[in-house]
Amino acid sequence: MTTFSVLVLLLFIAMLSVGGKQGAIAFVSLGINFALLFLSIVLVQFHLPPLPVTFVTGIIILAVTIFFGNEDDGSTTTAFYAAVIAMILLLLIIVPVEHWAQVGGFGDEDSEDLEGMSTLIGISFLKVEICTVVLSTLGAIAEAAMAISSGLSEIQEQQPTITGRRLYDDGINVGKQIIGTTLNTLFFGFFGGFLALFIWFVGLHYSLSQVFNDKVFGAELIMVLLSFIGVLLTVPITAAVAGWRWQKRAS
């Protein structure tokens, strides 16, 4: 057996025994998300426009991550609406920032990997970079939206007379509680992957100005910052959507 198959088996057993049915469903959602990710790469390979492809698969990934394995209808619907709005707003920030930064594709540090490859493939790597940033941020957006909306549905249960406006404020407060740990999840998640690159920079004595103008470093740092912004946008949006839906139901 390969290392991969043993690890898959172990993760499935662990998720099933710790999470029961919910765990098994979460495991399935992981598989579906992988299939969606691979599908979007294949579709882009067949020259479908990268941005619409990402937009559609992004919405499906959000739905899979949020609706799979969560039973509470009200809070998951709120989280899904909020996550989709946050993704759209984030796209509106990502597109101009990436066009300004021009960090799509590959840098000097990639030259060994590019040896013998044709890079003239006729698909804009700038657009591919935009897709990469959106896709890698979706998990964090979904998680933050879920955390806030499930916290708020708890409050709705305990105080059925609460106003939509108060609910919004409470949502921001829940956001303040989770923001620290969420940003750390993202920070470590991304920096684990940058370890090799940073060892390269320090080992080859890059100067500070070289690092801050390096294409690969720029791409990676911009990705982290945009994902932070994505989560930051998710907080008020989720609070607002929850408040709005609560108000609508009350009237």
């Binding site: 998720m15 710790v18 999470g19 919910q22 765990g23 469903i25 979460a26 959602s29 992981l30 998300n33 992988f34 990710l37 990934i61 991550t65 949020i66 799979f68 394995g69 969560n70 896709l135 890698s136 941020t137 979706l138 998990g139 964090a140 979904a142 998680e143 879920m146 955390a147 499930s150 999840t185 993202l186 998640g189 991304f190 992957g193």
Partner: peptide, 13 residues
């Protein structure tokens, strides 16, 4: 309830 979303966060990154 939180493990599913968290595993997905890292997977996507």
């Amino acid at each position: 309830s939180i493990m599913g979303p968290l595993v997905n966060v890292l997977f996507l990154i």
